[in-house]
Design a protein around this nucleic acid. Sequence first.
DNA 1: CTATAACATGAAAACCTTTTCTGAAAAACA
DNA 2: TGTTTTTCAGAAAAGGTTTTCATGTTATAG
Lengths: 336, 336
Amino acid sequence: MEKETVTIYDVAREAGVSMATVSRVVNGNQNVKESTRKKVEEVIQRLNYRPNAVARGLASRKTTTIGVIIPDVTNLYFSSIARGVDDVASMYKYNIFMANSDGEEKKEIRVLQTLLAQQVDGVIYMGNTIGDYLRKEIRLSRVPIVLAGTVDSKSEFPAVHINYEDATRDAVRKLVETHNEKIALIIADKKYPIDETLRMNGYLKGLQEAGIEVNEDYIIRTLYSYEQGEVVYKRLKEMGVTAAVVSNDLLAVSIVGAALDHNEKIPEDFEVITSDNSMLTEAVRPQLTTIKQPLYDIGAVAMRMLTKLMAGEMDEDTLMRQFELPYVIDERRTTK
Amino acid sequence: MEKETVTIYDVAREAGVSMATVSRVVNGNQNVKESTRKKVEEVIQRLNYRPNAVARGLASRKTTTIGVIIPDVTNLYFSSIARGVDDVASMYKYNIFMANSDGEEKKEIRVLQTLLAQQVDGVIYMGNTIGDYLRKEIRLSRVPIVLAGTVDSKSEFPAVHINYEDATRDAVRKLVETHNEKIALIIADKKYPIDETLRMNGYLKGLQEAGIEVNEDYIIRTLYSYEQGEVVYKRLKEMGVTAAVVSNDLLAVSIVGAALDHNEKIPEDFEVITSDNSMLTEAVRPQLTTIKQPLYDIGAVAMRMLTKLMAGEMDEDTLMRQFELPYVIDERRTTK
DNA sequence: CTATAACATGAAAACCTTTTCTGAAAAACA
DNA sequence: TGTTTTTCAGAAAAGGTTTTCATGTTATAG
């Protein structure tokens, strides 16, 4: 009754060859005579033999498995990237361990450790800051890692993303063109380097170019959550702000929502540019003007890079550069 | 230079005990004298020993790993469930292999096979129909499986979800109360049993109760994609339909969006009830009236169930019942 | 104080592959 | 035909644990 598993040994016996030979045919090794290959393949079919990946991993020290650290699958920005990762991973026969970290370093470290214990061949990291302890942990691990949709403030690890600074500057420029003078930047309350350094710099640069003086109050840090829309909107209005660059789609949607609740005319009275281009931006009304990030591609490219690193085809030191994908600003209905 | 991995053998030697003893302390086995435990733990700390999960898996035939089959991580309905799964999985120290299937049986089978090759201890399945071949594959596998947010039309496998039939009937009732007579049902173009059987039955039942005759044209099958909003809306209007129950949030959002594009007054001229309650429904304006499914909980409960199955604490035959979680209809701004 | 039970530990097999090394047979060459 | 190279295949070790069984030691009971 108990399903007895069929092993490579069973196949060998049945086919009258050695385990080594079976292993060779399973792995597509060329050193097998056509006739014996046929024979072995027939037996594999007949017994319905499925190689045990765990044993394989132990013997070969390669698990064809990667780890993906993601703050929250439920966040469209990250899940879109993850989808890109998964598609190319499965193209290369890699299986994915996925773990949510909530972007908290403590969890990230725990998660990384369990991934390493699982002997993953590489890891894709999505998140925020790479804290010092996490950084040390990664260095120690000796498995390649690449960051997707995430920047490493110390440029130590390979990463693929867009140029957030330029993109944000462009967004500000766009808002300046339509004569906005009180322009807000809405970013995360956590200390994400993408927000705090890159988007911030882009924002400042955009204002500076236009000769607009910076008002610190227009830089708002908040939770990435739709409940915050109303709160943020009110603060904006109290200050007479007429336009905002928002770093998260869901938040942008809810800010626009709050504006509509208050009978604001969009984009006439209030303009918004958001930053992710998840499908949200096109589904809602008014459709959101957005910095169009190629999310899927970011994931795909990152994974492709990781396969090269894992195959040793690429030296981490040579191609450690930050890989920048193009972005574009897609004008829709929340800008004039 | 090459990072030499430290094994249980190193720890044993260093601590002056056998591998068996080290294994015992690592696994919290009680049969170890306090003093030796201390000693071993000290050495583990000092050498920074991390058990190799692959070797462990091979030796024990337990990988503390589960597989999650998901149509698309990018779909909020499924990713919300997945988040619930992940949280309780990590609570029980299980690692998750996640694989996207696009809801296509072919991919599902391939994915299931690679998961089984990885020797997962159990699997969570999200999807649509369980096709015959997939069904056979699962039966053969002998690892427990539970369906999350998914029904098994043959009730062969344990599953957790809400009562889609009742929920849909309630939604129809609600629309009938406000004197709608031409009520549409918008479901997936694929043959999902949740849509084709359950939601359909609920819809029919709701109409029947109200003495409204069914018009087949009002049952629309379409892609779950925001681009379809316009298309569906137009068909609805041509037929003079005044209300719809939609089985996917993103689609519902885009239908409402299309209606707004055509200067329709919502909910006065057109009412919509959607079915998932992803965060989308509250972020957009007007906020969507929805069947409130406890998505996270569906995932969490399913995973909890799976742990029991895996631990043998629960017999698949005894508790094979379909586990129903409560739902509620949350009235917001797309119904009168 | 002896007989017995309970505890603590180690040796070695088992888990299922891959991989290295070696050798035999076949093919190519001279 | 003899020699060298190439091709094909097997034996056995290695990979890092868990687990079973046996044994020595200590505590408990009589």
